[in-house]
Amino acid sequence: MNLKHFKQEGSLLYEMKPQYGSSIILIAGLFAFAFVGYYVAIYGLMWVMLILGVLSFWAIATKKMSIDMDKRLLHAKVGLAKPQVTISIDSIQRFELFTMSNNFIKTNAMLSAYYLDESGKEKAIQIAQGFRVKAMQSILNEMEEIIGR
């Protein structure tokens, strides 16, 4: 299997490579605003932007996703507040694409998976996010290839 977005570790364990593109721009923007706040001496702005920047850096650094095909499980840690979740691959119901557009231009694309938790309730988890729908497509294709759908 020729994988672009996942790294194969061991025979049946696949780890998703971190997606830096959009996050770097977000963090750079936040720090740029913090610098502007420092420059024009609005220290409130500076601190808020600095804290947001550090938090989003932390969130991106701790983001993890791996697929264990041996046990048919998906481990994911997304976001700061949410703990790591483990999902059975067979409980994944469907994938959904979320797009955000500003003034008719698509600015953000996000891929999520919907799954059933132990109590049978439908829940969503973010798989990836970026600027382009094409990237989401190739991530989904690779995931489907791995989980064999």
């Binding site: 469907r94 994938f95 959904e96 694409l97 979320f98 797009t99 955000m100 557009s101």
Partner: peptide
Amino acid sequence: IYQSSEMGSW
């Protein structure tokens, strides 16, 4: 067939 959502609607 898939669901595509935007802000507030799908």
